[in-house]
Simulated scan of single mutants.
Amino acid sequence: MQPRRRWRRPLTLLVLAPLVLSGCSSELNDQWARGGLPESVTDHGDRITTLWQGAWAAAFITGAIVWALILAACVVYRRKATDTGLPPQVRYNLPVEVLYTTLPIVMVLVYFYFTARDQNEVGDVKNDAAVNVSVVGKRWSWDFNYLDAGVFQAGTPGEPPTLYLPVGEKVHFDVVARDVIHSFWVPQFIFKKDMIPGRVNSFELTPTKVGFYAGKCAELCGTYHARMLFNVAVVERAEYDRQLEALRAQGNVGDLTDVEGPQQPRSGESLTIDPETDETESE
């Protein structure tokens, strides 16, 4: 009886630990329910999250079926002590061949349908947004052009700029790269868009929650790719207007989409960043 008692406490802790930990953080529970995705702060987030959850559910079900068939075959068709020689050979099994040919085709078609449906909805550009912004990716920072107001925010490497957006208003984004391929990514938007030199990519979304969100480049673009960061501040309309007026007062009037931005290395120069101060200088 003593060995059995010795095992009771570890087993009890093993069973109760997930329940206790799940009660410690509702946010962690929500993230698990979302399949590891952060909470979305745009109008497209729920659609993308649902697609992600469906893909995980289908993958788990498929994996469970495959493993069940493998284990069943191992048990049912295992070699017995009375068996002698090789098992009987058959040329083909038509029902099984039809099944493993048609079932993957059906699965791919289902995946394709839901992915194409949601991608078309998220990528639909109606050009009816209340706010229009141009985002320029450059090694290794960002320029934000507020096209309606005719002002801009120029970023410099090591100093993440902040993009201001009004909450509850549809925003049209034009994104382009000045030098190499970059990618505009805000994790809590549950969305990213590649930025290609010489090509303007567009998308539209509506921020739904006031807050301060981190953004980054999601395409390996060079030495200081990891420092190519920016912030997004979703604010009320009055605060948004104040920020644009502040840029105007600073003299940041115009559009940096098609011009060489500040702090860019000239031909033959390299750009270094001091890890202590994040200051930049050309060599």
Rank of each mutant, 00 (worst) to 15 (best):
T49F: 03
F173C: 02
K193Y: 03
T49G: 08
T257V: 09
A58V: 07
A81L: 04
S40T: 15
V167C: 09
P265T: 07
V131L: 03
V135Q: 07
G137Y: 02
T62N: 12
F112R: 15
I181L: 08
W56P: 00
Q263H: 12
L16R: 04
N93P: 00
G36I: 08
V106D: 10
S282G: 00
T272N: 04
Y77I: 00
A55Y: 14
A68S: 07
L256F: 05
L99H: 03
A72G: 11
G261Y: 04
V96Y: 13
V96P: 00
W52G: 02
E97G: 04
V232Q: 04
D241E: 12
R47Y: 03
E169H: 07
V131P: 00
A249G: 04
L109S: 11
P187D: 15
D179I: 02
D83F: 04
R78P: 00
W185L: 12
G150A: 02
A73V: 01
V167L: 08
G123S: 15
L19N: 09
F184P: 00
S22W: 14
V253D: 06
V76H: 09
M195E: 10
R6F: 13
S267I: 01
G63E: 06
D241Y: 02
Q31W: 00
D255F: 01
D124E: 15
G45V: 11
L220T: 13
G63W: 04
G150W: 01
G36Y: 12
D46Y: 05
R227F: 03
I181R: 13
G45Y: 13
A59I: 07
L256P: 05
R4H: 07
D194S: 11
S141T: 09
Y213I: 10
V106L: 15
E260L: 10
T12Q: 12
L165I: 05
L244Y: 02
A177L: 03
L51D: 14
T115N: 15
Q119N: 13
R9P: 03
N231K: 10
D274Q: 01
Y164H: 09
